[in-house]
């Protein structure tokens, strides 16, 4: 079977909307209901964040959601148990995003085996260096049929971008600015220049833009230069707000706003 990420990029004509959630947030049992709601309301792909005590690349919103999730009792082992049996009802591609330490404690081989077993299509591990991935884990990922999407930033030089794109499976994660997650909420000229530069390189793997994509306007700007975009902090903030709306309603409102539906 073709990896669902590859099929998504092959079969989708328009912009791809990928949404980040933190596993076990806002409530421990919300992981799967969120996936269902996101699929129902038109997200194309979901990145499920594995909460970590020390999320170096994340801004305040995702840090806080990770802390809440850990206090709720979320663990990587429990996450895999929650994801047991979600296929085929959840048919969109799913990506696990997390820091290297929890993955290494489980063991990369066990982790990838459980990804394959539960129907996880790809992973993003920001603090796993590309060279170490290539030397130690690339063949293992390939054997399990799990993609590893790597990151580039405005400061990544051209040779390195080509090398990282070649190593990336599924898609290349274009970090929109030199920032932690959720630190910006607009797209400036220097970023547009960077997006155009990457677009014009004609890389062998499609790109998704993330970090600082927070509303319809920034989503559409990103989609001019890449196949789609990833929304994280803005979504976490939206579902974390107190009020009378149900989780389903919050998801519906958020996705509608982004997709302009």
């Amino acid at each position: 079977m073709m990896n669902r990420i590859d099929r998504l990029f092959k079969e989708t004509k328009g912009e791809i909307l990928s949404v980040y959630i933190t596993a076990g947030y806002p409530e421990l049992g919300d992981t799967v209901p969120l996936l269902e709601a996101l699929q129902n309301h038109g997200a194309h792909m979901v990145e499920i964040g594995i909460p970590f005590s020390d999320p170096l690349a994340d801004g305040a919103v995702i840090q806080d959601s990770s802390q809440v999730a850990l206090r709720n009792g979320m663990k990587l082992d429990l996450l895999f148990k929650q994801l047991e049996g979600i296929r085929p009802a959840i048919h969109m591609p799913l990506v696990l995003m997390g820091y290297l330490n929890p993955v290494l404690q489980m063991g990369m081989d066990t982790f990838l085996g459980r990804c394959r077993h539960t129907g996880i299509d790809g992973v993003i591990i920001p603090d796993l260096p590309p060279a170490e991935y290539d030397a130690r884990y690339r063949e293992m990922f390939s054997a399990y049929g799990v993609h590893n999407s790597l990151l580039i930033t405005p400061h990544t030089d051209e040779n390195r971008i080509r090398r990282i794109a070649e190593l990336s499976g599924g898609f290349l994660y274009l970090v929109a600015d030199s920032s932690t997650t959720g630190a910006r909420n607009s797209i400036g000229d220097h970023q547009v220049e960077y997006f155009r530069r990457i677009h014009d390189m004609g890389l062998p793997v499609p790109g998704l833009i993330g970090f600082g994509i927070s509303n319809r306007e920034t989503f559409l700007t990103a989609c001019k230069f890449a196949r789609g975009a990833i929304i994280g902090s803005a979504f976490i903030r939206a579902i974390g707000e107190s009020g009378t709306l149900s989780l389903q309603q919050k998801v519906e409102m958020f996705i509608k706003e982004i997709r302009g539906a």
Binding site: L56, A57, L100, P126, D127, L128, P129, E132, L150, L151, I152, T153, H155, T156, R160, I164, V175, S178, S179, T180
Partner: peptide, 11 residues
């Protein structure tokens, strides 16, 4: 040892 850093710190 090593340098297990996200790409944002690479440069």
């Amino acid at each position: 040892g090593g340098a297990y850093i996200p790409e944002m710190l690479y440069s």
